[in-house]
Computed example of a mutant assay.
Amino acid sequence: MLERIPYAGHLPAGFFSLAEAPYASLPFAPEESAAQVQQLLTWEAARHDIIIYTDHRHLRLVGLFPHHGDAAYFGFWETTDDAALNAQAFGLLAADAARFGKTTISGPLHFSTYHRYRLRLGPAPSWQQFDREPVNPAYYPALLHHAGLTPALTFESRLLRAETVPRVYLEKNPALELLPQIPFDFIPVTPENWALLADDIFQLIHEIFSLNPAYQPVGRAQFDLLYNPQYAAKLCPHSSVLFRDRASGRLAALSLCHPNYHALRLPAGESPVFARDYPRLPRKTLLAKTVGVHPDFRQRGLMDLLAAYAMRRFQTYYEEIIFCLMRADNYSLRFTDGLAVETAHYALFERRVN
C-alpha cells in the first residue's frame, strides 16, 4: 500500500535499503550517503514542505515544495519497473503540488543543482559511471513519461578517445601558445589553496552558475559538505586551476577536473586522493567536471584557455577525457564539435500541474 508521509525529522524504515534493489544486477549505482541525505533534509526542511511517498518495498519518491515560488520538485526517487505504482505516486505528488499552489513539477532534483539531479537516458555508455554521474535503470525515463513528465532540459557527456587527442592539439595550438601571455595568474587547486581561498571559491561558483536553469543558492555549510579540502584532494593538480586577474586580484575562472576513480570501487564513504589513487587506475581518464568563467570576464576566450591549461600536461597523465554533464545548449560543447566522441544523454523532466 502506498503511503504519504510528511517529513518530520526522520525517514521511514527501509528508505535507503529500498534504493539498492533496482541496481542489484547493474554495474553502476548512485552514490548516496545516508548521513548526508539526513543532513540535507534537516537543512532544507526550514524552507520546504517535504512529503515522502512509499510502499516500503518497491518505490520511494520525495516531493519537495519550496515555501516560495511556483515550482515543485521531486527527488530521491528509486523504484522497480512498475508503471501503475509510479503513476499513483506521481499523482499524489501532483495533488500536493496543486494544494501548495505550484504550477510545475520538475526533477529529479535533490533541492538544488549542487546535489544529485537529472536522469541518464538510453543505454549505459562504455565508461558505465563516473563520479557523481546521474545513473539509473534504463526503464526510469519510460516510467516518467507514463506519469506525464517529459524532458525540459537536456545534457550531454562526451568522451574524447585517445586516438582523437592529437587532432585536438593541432586545432587548439593557438590557445596553448597564447596561455603564457594572458594577464592572469594560475592557481593550482590543491587542498592547501582550497582552504586559503574557500570564501572566494564559494562566491565564484555562485556567480558563475547562478543564472543556470534550476539553480538554487545554498548556504556555506551546505556547500562545505560537498566542496572542501577533502574534495580538493581528489582533484588533478595538473589540470585543475583558478585564474586570478592580475589587475583586480579577483578570481575570474575555474576548472575542476579529476580522474575517473570509479574502477577502484573504493569503500563507501572513502573519498579518493589523487596522490594515492591515481597510480592505481587501470585506465587514466580525466573528467572535466566543473568549468566556468565569472560573468565579468566572459567574451575573452577564457574557456578555451582553461582547456589549454589542462592540455599542457594532459598527454603525460591521461589517455582520454570525458567532458561531463554539459547542458545541450551550452557554449562549452563547441570544444568537441566536429570530433569523434561517444556521447551520453541526460534530462531534467517536468510536467504542468493541472
Rank of each mutant, 00 (worst) to 15 (best):
M1T: 14
R4Y: 02
P12I: 08
A13C: 07
P27G: 10
P27I: 09
P30R: 08
Q38N: 12
H48S: 01
T54A: 06
D55P: 01
F65N: 05
D70W: 00
A71V: 12
A72M: 03
Y73H: 09
Y73K: 02
F74H: 05
G75P: 01
D82S: 07
A84R: 13
G91T: 11
G91L: 10
L93G: 02
A94F: 01
G101A: 07
Y117K: 07
L121R: 08
S126L: 03
Q129A: 09
F130L: 06
F130Q: 00
F130N: 00
F130T: 01
V135R: 02
P137W: 10
A138S: 12
P141Y: 01
H146M: 00
T150M: 06
P151M: 09
T154S: 13
L160C: 05
E163D: 15
T164A: 15
Y169F: 14
E171K: 13
K172P: 00
E177W: 01
T190H: 10
D200T: 09
E207G: 00
A214Q: 15
G219D: 14
R220M: 12
A221T: 13
F223R: 07
L225S: 13
N228H: 12
P229G: 09
Y231H: 13
Y231E: 13
C236L: 04
H238W: 10
S239F: 00
S240L: 01
S248D: 08
S255V: 01
C257W: 00
C257R: 03
A268E: 15
G269D: 13
D277F: 01
P282Q: 08
L287R: 01
A288K: 00
K289I: 11
V291C: 11
H294R: 05
P295L: 09
R298T: 14
R300N: 13
L302H: 05
L302F: 05
L306H: 04
A308I: 05
R313I: 01
C324S: 11
A328F: 04
R334P: 00
R334T: 11
F335V: 02
A344V: 03
A344T: 04
Y346V: 10
A347F: 01
